[in-house]
Amino acid sequence: MEMWHDLANIYTTLSQWRDAEVCLSKSQAIHPYFASRFHSTGLLHESRGLHQEALINPNHRVSLISTACVLMQLGGQSSSISRSLLTDALRLDRTNPSGWYNLGLLYKADAGTSAWEAAECFEAAAFVEESSPIEPFR
Rank of each mutant, 00 (worst) to 15 (best):
54 A>K: 05
1 M>D: 02
17 W>I: 05
24 L>A: 08
10 I>V: 10
71 L>T: 06
96 N>C: 05
14 L>H: 06
44 L>I: 08
114 S>P: 00
25 S>F: 11
95 T>F: 10
80 S>N: 06
121 C>E: 07
124 A>S: 10
71 L>H: 08
74 L>Q: 14
11 Y>D: 05
123 E>T: 15
125 A>E: 04
64 L>N: 03
21 E>D: 03
72 M>L: 12
47 S>W: 08
103 L>Q: 07
24 L>D: 04
7 L>V: 02
47 S>D: 15
101 Y>S: 11
52 Q>A: 07
66 S>G: 00
27 S>G: 12
72 M>D: 00
53 E>T: 01
70 V>A: 15
117 E>V: 13
105 L>C: 10
22 V>C: 11
120 E>R: 14
44 L>G: 11
7 L>W: 00
6 D>P: 02
41 T>W: 12
20 A>Q: 06
3 M>D: 06
57 N>C: 00
99 G>S: 15
17 W>T: 11
31 H>S: 15
135 E>Q: 10
61 R>V: 07
97 P>R: 06
64 L>C: 01
51 H>L: 13
31 H>W: 08
8 A>S: 04
105 L>A: 05
107 Y>Q: 13
20 A>F: 14
84 S>I: 03
108 K>E: 12
110 D>I: 13
110 D>R: 10
96 N>E: 09
105 L>M: 08
36 S>T: 13
74 L>A: 10
41 T>Q: 14
1 M>F: 01
50 L>S: 03
26 K>W: 02
112 G>I: 09
28 Q>H: 09
90 L>T: 09
86 L>P: 13
73 Q>P: 03
73 Q>Y: 07
22 V>A: 14
9 N>Q: 11
128 V>T: 15
6 D>A: 13
117 E>Y: 09
90 L>W: 07
128 V>H: 08
78 S>I: 01
25 S>T: 10
71 L>W: 03
22 V>E: 15
29 A>S: 14
24 L>Q: 05
3 M>A: 04
130 E>S: 12
65 I>D: 00
123 E>K: 09
116 W>L: 13
62 V>Q: 01
93 D>C: 08
78 S>N: 11
118 A>G: 12
102 N>V: 15
58 P>I: 03
109 A>Q: 11
129 E>G: 05
23 C>R: 10
69 C>P: 00
52 Q>P: 01
86 L>H: 08
86 L>W: 03
43 L>T: 05
51 H>C: 07
35 A>M: 00
110 D>K: 08
57 N>W: 01
95 T>R: 11
88 D>I: 06
57 N>S: 06
132 S>D: 04
127 F>G: 01
98 S>R: 14
100 W>S: 03
71 L>M: 09
48 R>S: 03
37 R>N: 05
33 Y>I: 11
42 G>T: 00
108 K>A: 13
78 S>P: 07
103 L>S: 08
5 H>N: 12
67 T>M: 04
79 S>M: 15
93 D>S: 09
11 Y>L: 06
70 V>M: 03
69 C>E: 08
92 L>C: 14
56 I>C: 00
3 M>R: 03
35 A>S: 01
28 Q>L: 12
43 L>F: 05
104 G>D: 06
